[in-house]
Each structure stands twice: as C-alpha cells, then as structure tokens.
Design a protein around this nucleic acid. Structure first.
Lengths: 340, 340
DNA sequence: CTGAAAGCGCTTACAG
DNA sequence: CTGAAAGCGCTTACAG
C-alpha cells in the first residue's frame, strides 16, 4: 500500500509538503509541486479515507436513512435514493444507505461512531421517532417528508396541501361536481404518512368551498385487493365523474378496472394521479398526474445538507421547502359526460 | 466526544484493557470487565469507526455498485439493493451505495482510498468494464449477473438458460406450438445485458428441439412504444398461442393491449413473464412469471463476500451460483384454444 | 490477568 | 517556501 510517506520519499520532500501540495492549503513552489505530482502519479497514490477522517473529523460520507412501510409503495423510493446519491457525488460525498427496520438504533450507531458527516432521512413521518435521535446527533440532518415538528432540521417535501387543492380545482373548473379520492392504505397513515391526510383534508376543504362532493377512501396497496376496492368505490358512487388517486397501486390497477366496467377515461371519468413521469411511462399508466418530484427533493435535501456541513454555522436558519405541485397532462382530464 | 481514554480513566484501567474488554480478545477478570462495562454505559461510549479502520485495516463497510442502463427497468433494482443492505447488516456491515455513471472510476477511487472491505456489483454485463478494476482492487468482489469471464470473483445470477427452457417446456407440454418471446430493448443487449440473449437463445433452441415455432423480438421499455410493439408482434403472428415476456414494461402494458384486442388470458393466449412476486402484486400484473429472485441473489452475494473477507483465504475456490427458475402460477397458462 | 508503547496514515499548528 | 513533530482514536504485539 502506497502512503503519503512513499510519495514524500519519491519526491524528496517531507510528508507535510506532500499533504499541502495536494490540498493546496499553502503556497508551494512550482518545482516542488511538479515533483510531488509526478510521484503521486507514478506511485498511484490515493489518500487513505480512514486516516484522513481521523485527522480531520470529516468523512465526506452522508448517511441515507430509508424507511419502508409494510403497505407502502417501495419502488418509488428508488427515485429519491438516486437523487440523493447523485447530488452527493457531485458535491464530493459518498452515501451510506441504511435500510434497517430500527431507524433510531441505526442513526445513533452511525452518528456515535462518526461514520458520516450528515444524514438524509427519507419518508419522514408526522411523529418520526428518528427525529429525536437526529436532534441528539452532532451531525446535521435534512428530511424528505414534513414532520409535525421541524426545528433543528431542514425539510423538503411536495406541497401536499396545494396538491389536494389543485386536483379539486382542476376538476371543478371543468364542471365536475362529484369526485372520489383514493388514498393510501390506512396502515400508511397510522405509521405516520401525514402526506396522505394532508392531501385528503386539503382536497376535502377545497371541495366544500367549491360545492363539490368528495368521497375519500383508503385503498389497499396491492392486487387483488386494490382492484376490488376500486370497484367497490365506483359502485358506491355511480354519479361521480372524477377520480383522484394518491395511491400508486390504485393507478396501476385502474386501467383494467375501468375496462372491465366498460368505462373510458376521460370520456366517462376524469382521472388525476400522483406519481412521477418516469413511473407513468414505465408502468404504462395513462393518467394525468401530479409529479411526485422525487429526484428534485433528493437533490435539494443533499444540497442543503452539504451547505450546512461545510458552512461552519451549524445553526444557520433552518428551511422548510414545499415544492409546488405540477400536473403532467396525459389526457385523462376532460369535462364530465353530459347527463342523460 | 468520548474516547477510549475517557472510558479507561473512568474505569481506572488502561486503554488497552478497555479495548480487550470490549473485543473479548483476551481474558479479563470479572471485576475489571464490570467496571469497564459500567464506564462504557455511563459515558455512552461508541468506538470511532475511522480510528478503528485505521488500526485494523477493516472498515466493516461493503461497496454496492449499482448500474442503471438507459433503457432498463430501474425500479427492479431496489429489490436487489435491499437484499444486499439487509444481509450486510445482519452480518455486521454497512453499505456504501454507489450509483455513478463511471463505475470503473468509482470502484477504483473507493478501493484505493480503502473505504470498504469488499464490493458487490449489480447488473453485471457480459463484458463489464468494472471487472478489470475489481480484479486490480485489493478487496474481494461478488457479482450479481453472470459475465463472460468469471475468475477471481464470486458470481450469482438467475439461471437464464434454464428459464428459457422452462418457459418453452411449460407451454409445449400444454400443446402450444407457436409462441412469441418479447425481450428487453436492443439497447440493453448492446450494453451487455447478456441475460437477454441467454434466455432467448435457450428458449429458441429448446423450441427447435420440441418442434415449437418461436418468434423472438426486442420490445421497448416504456409507453407508448411498448404498447405499439406488442400490438405489432401479435399482428404479425395471429396464430401464436403463447407469449413469453422477458421485459417488465411489456408485462405492465400487456393487460390493456390484450383488452383492446379483445383477447383474454389464458383462454385466448397463455402468458409467462419474468419478474418478482412483489412486482406482480404491486403493479397488478396478472400473469404467471418466473421469479427474478432479486432478494435471494442480493443476500447470497453478501453472504459469500463476507465469508471471503473474513475467511482470510482470499483465493479460496470461487463460486458461480445460478439459481434455478421457479414459476409463480397466477393462472395465465392453459392449453391453447381449440382450432376452428 | 494487565499496562506502556508503538503504530495505522493522515493533517496542521509551530518553527524557521 | 518547507520541515519536524504532535495528534486524531483506535488495536495489538511486547513485557511483566
């Protein structure tokens, strides 16, 4: 293994000079710099990360704490994860991915052993048990998902209140007056998926203001249950002309449900979902949807986290950034069918 | 920050004694052990990972190198990733997730800086450029995906040859004599997705042996292209009674294609896919399929990698483990319809 | 059964 | 502009 000592010897200078030549933290004569660079190249020297971390108290690694609820839509998580790892690399950091069931234990262990410089928490719940551990940690943290209490952390999320409002506004403007909303399973809500009721409440309230009847249901997260659910909801409200989906599995199941009922979108029923464009394309989902902005959220969280790590000012003002919803139009929204 | 020195002081012993008491690498009197344990608990001591790595040359971190092809099905990767991170934790390791475009550079950088004890390579191609870098690295590696040249590494993959044979055998036994196979996009094959042609060739050969006509096509990986592809393939072979899918997007798109053509499975056409049961449930895929065994493969790779890391014998015999295919029956396979 | 000391490979004040 | 030395927090032969 080639160390900084080998480089120093080959270049005929001291180890500290090699270190400074590499970091640029003090002025080095052109001649010495050249000799060091040659030696580094010839020997193929790369600094030892552990030794550097020990000396500087910086690991240049970020901890990414994922969290998978039993009934939630796991594959969607990958888009957040990739946004995080990509932006981290652009900023010179690597990413330690932690998927343990026991997020509190994992966060504490990794924080105490000084394995990372900061944390990104995914899928943050209303009352997220990981937040206590994060506040106790010496490393800063950025959240994806809006908890009830946001002090001491930077928070990034889709604006689910605006999303619920937007969905209802759009259908109302086209003339719809009765709408069904299919949310995530009850399980998800109970485990802290506040975004579910945040969207649902905002939609409900806006519907009331506009004189729209909105029926809110939780749907299952997998087949065949979700197919049966959708049929039951549609049976219960034959006069509804709009369908809002805050549930990816429902979106995936809906095409075959509509077909079996002889319904077409948007002629018979208008549909708005909430998932990413990537998802729509890959899974052949033909419905207009509010983009979940997973990639953007992952990148923004890392950006802010690194700024805080490197900014020196650990208590600089904290931010709560809610991304405004945007509907990707795939042609599943139209005026309701004429009454016979 | 509390160090081993603080613990030693509090317990009234030397630092080496604390270290040995914690590691159990030499016998410690019950009395001393108790004092050390108390001090550790009182002070909340956790060893510094960087310092330990420097002293032992072991990081207890595994590098996981993902690789996303432009036209491949990204969400499926998450299942492999979770298999890896979970098994790693069970064995006492954390996972550094690397998703860089430049896998060779990433592997070299991480290996040279000694950030990990070993590597898991995901989605390994026939001629994978990362393999050269891995063989040059001092850390061992386990692959998920079978490359052309396997020496010096442990390899895990689904047995795609047996998968192709099994798919054809199953349909042939029921009486099918003309079958369409929809593979991954050409792009994926060109970028080294050998499993695509390995399955296709095996299916083709078995079909020839059995007197079955098999038409092999590459399909697109997203809508609306894949829907149009499927329609074109079915148009071209109206007498085909079986459909084999080695393409997740095709599986997701097929239900609506069949419906628009007025076809039902298995009455009009038998279908066998290749994806995991989780996927089938979440995305409402109603077709029988060969399980892609992502979770198992991830776990097996980690298991073997850790055995090699800890076994001391870096050149112990290398393994190539091909998991036999199993069909999850969802009722989409039946004898072909009677001829009129 | 326990301790003093060397060493892992870096970085960074301290001197000159 | 450069070097000798201390120190980061551990582990592990070496002594006793």
């Amino acid at each position: 293994m080639v160390t900084i000592g080998d480089v120093a010897q080959a270049a005929g200078v001291s180890r500290s000079t090699v270190s400074y030549a590499l970091s640029g933290k003090r002025t080095i004569s052109a001649e010495v710099r050249k000799k060091v660079e040659e030696a580094v190249r010839d020997l193929g020297y790369t600094p030892n990360a552990g030794a550097r971390a020990l000396a500087t108290s910086q690991t240049r690694v970020l901890g990414l704490l994922a969290r998978f609820l039993p009934d939630e839509f796991a594959p969607a998580m990958l888009q957040y994860i990739l946004g995080v790892t990509e932006r981290a690399r652009e900023l010179g950091y690597d990413t330690l991915l932690v998927s343990e069931e026991d997020g509190v234990g994992a966060l504490t262990r990794i924080s105490d052993s000084r394995m990372v410089d900061g944390f990104v928490l995914l899928n943050v719940a209303e009352h997220d048990s990981r937040l206590g551990a994060l506040r106790r940690a010496k490393q800063p943290g950025a959240l994806i998902g809006l908890p009830g209490e946001t002090d001491g952390v930077d928070v990034f999320d889709l604006d689910f209140v605006a999303t619920g409002q937007l969905m209802v506004d759009r259908l109302h403007a086209l003339g719809h007056r009765e709408v069904v909303l299919v949310s995530q399973p009850q399980h998800v809500v109970e485990r802290g998926g506040a975004y579910v009721w945040r969207l649902a409440n905002a939609a409900q309230e806006r519907a009331r203001e506009l004189g729209v009847t909105l029926h809110n249901y939780s749907g299952s997260s997998s087949q065949p249950a979700i197919g049966a659910d959708l049929n039951a909801f549609l049976d219960a409200h034959p006069s509804a002309t709009g369908l809002l989906l805050n549930n990816e599995a429902a979106a995936a199941a809906l095409p075959s449900v509509l077909q079996s009922r002889g319904l077409r979108s948007p002629d018979d029923i208008s549909v708005i979902g909430r998932y990413s464009d990537d998802f729509a394309r890959t899974f052949s989902l033909p419905f207009s949807s509010v983009d979940s902005a997973a990639d953007v959220l992952g990148r923004r969280a890392v950006q802010q986290l690194v700024a805080r790590i490197e900014g020196g000012d650990a208590d600089a003002p904290f931010t709560v950034e809610l991304i405004p919803p945007v509907i990707d139009d795939r042609g599943s929204i139209a005026p309701p069918p004429a009454r016979h």
